[in-house]
Design a protein around this nucleic acid. Structure first.
Lengths: 151, 151
DNA sequence: CTTGACCCTGGACCTTGGTCCAGGGCGCAG
DNA sequence: CTGCGCCCTGGACCAAGGTCCAGGGTCAAG
């Protein structure tokens, strides 16, 4: 029956104190109790829960989704918890597919670029829009009133 | 030698006008010129560049990274452009690997959860921290001075 | 009791990638 | 010349997920 202050809890979960309070504000993690002074007290369940929140984040759940999962778990609604997880799984699969497409495109670019020589031979630069010569591109362009038609 | 106003440019690239101006503010896309009135004018190169920016975003580059890519391209530094792209490729591969791990974890959860019955049999709920009964969890906790030691 | 470490609250601030608005100035067709 | 639609600027605002700060109270060791 460990009893932890917020600092000890945060340290054990590898997060910052502010983060714990932020999760509390977000409705994800309430302290088990408070001292008369207002100090938060946490038990093992809270630690587990905090660690779960972090794991779920790594699994790609947003804090909002984690809150929903937590609510479903409180409701002990196994079916809905499962469905939420399936939805997330589908989402993750979609993201993987998108990243795989991205990888193909990038590796094509890398593989066809000689890495030296003429910019004209670099497909990456070509993909970038290729051949612009000159072009001053002043960052701090003070453009005054009254210029010739196209500055 | 098409000459476009910001609206036409935005429409052709499928972005909003504000987004074009936002990219300009971010140093990614300056108009080719300005009318005396201050109206922005764009040519084909700017359109290509804007489209590149969007494609690069889809490929997972942040605007900051796109800016770097653009700077390298201006410097016509083929070698460094290639290296930046390789770095991004490695990054994408890492993200894919993380998502694949995520997918494995989620599908294990989904596959081992019966989807009905006792919460105790649901691995998702167990991963969540499992068995907390009761716990009132008052959102608007007015905690007054003077309580018993642990409220 | 004193001291240093810890904790409290409320609110401001940060980053990223935009989006929207007010108040006013152009461009061009009729 | 009028009017409609486009454009200008600067600045506020959004969501997410924190992070930090000021100003003050508390806990526990010595």
């Amino acid at each position: 029956m460990t009893s932890l202050g917020i600092g000890a809890l945060a340290k054990r979960a590898g997060v910052r104190i502010d983060t714990v309070r932020y999760y509390e504000r977000s409705g994800l993690l309430a302290p088990k109790s408070r001292l008369e002074s207002g100090y938060r007290r946490y038990g093992d369940e809270e630690l587990t829960r905090l660690r779960f929140i972090r794991r779920a984040q790594v699994l790609g759940f947003s804090l909002k989704e984690i809150g929903e999962l937590l609510a479903l778990s409180k409701a002990r609604d196994v079916a809905r918890v499962k469905r939420a997880t399936q939805t997330k799984l589908a989402d993750v699969e979609e993201r993987i597919a998108a990243l795989v497409r991205m990888r193909e495109a990038l590796s094509t670019l890398v593989n066809t670029c000689p890495g030296h020589g003429e910019p004209a031979d670099c497909p990456i630069l070509k993909a970038l829009g290729g051949e612009e010569s000159h072009a001053p591109a002043s960052t701090s362009g003070a453009h005054s009133r009254s210029g010739t038609r196209t500055v």
